[in-house]
Amino acid sequence: MNAPLTLAHYMTVAGLLFLIGIFGALTRRNIIGILMSIELMFNAANINLAAFDRFLHPDGVTGQALALFVMTVAAAEIVVGLALLLAIYRGTDTVYAEDFNLLKG
């Protein structure tokens, strides 16, 4: 516990968060759950960017700026995702991903 914090610590946390996100995105039936898991994955990537910035390039802010771009894209993604979900829900009356089979031939 007393060992100094290294880049590996932060990368491990980000890796675990990313794995939890992947697991959720692959297994949740509810499509809102899938969107939430994708948000967790975005955050894992952002932790890595901020950690690289602090440990490898302490005088610059490039990693933090990139993380801000990721944040913007994530916000746009969740807004469009939820709007699509609302539109699909009106047509199919379900939120479960396996019932979204309108394009099935």
Binding site: T6, A8, M11, G15, F18, L19, L26, F55, L56, P58
Partner: peptide, 21 residues
């Protein structure tokens, strides 16, 4: 899938274990 990804991720993370702020 998570297990396979975990093996790869932690192999990469272990390479950075001597970098301190």
């Amino acid at each position: 899938v998570c297990f396979v990804a975990a093996v790869g991720l932690f192999k990469v993370a272990r390479l950075q274990s001597n970098i301190v702020a």
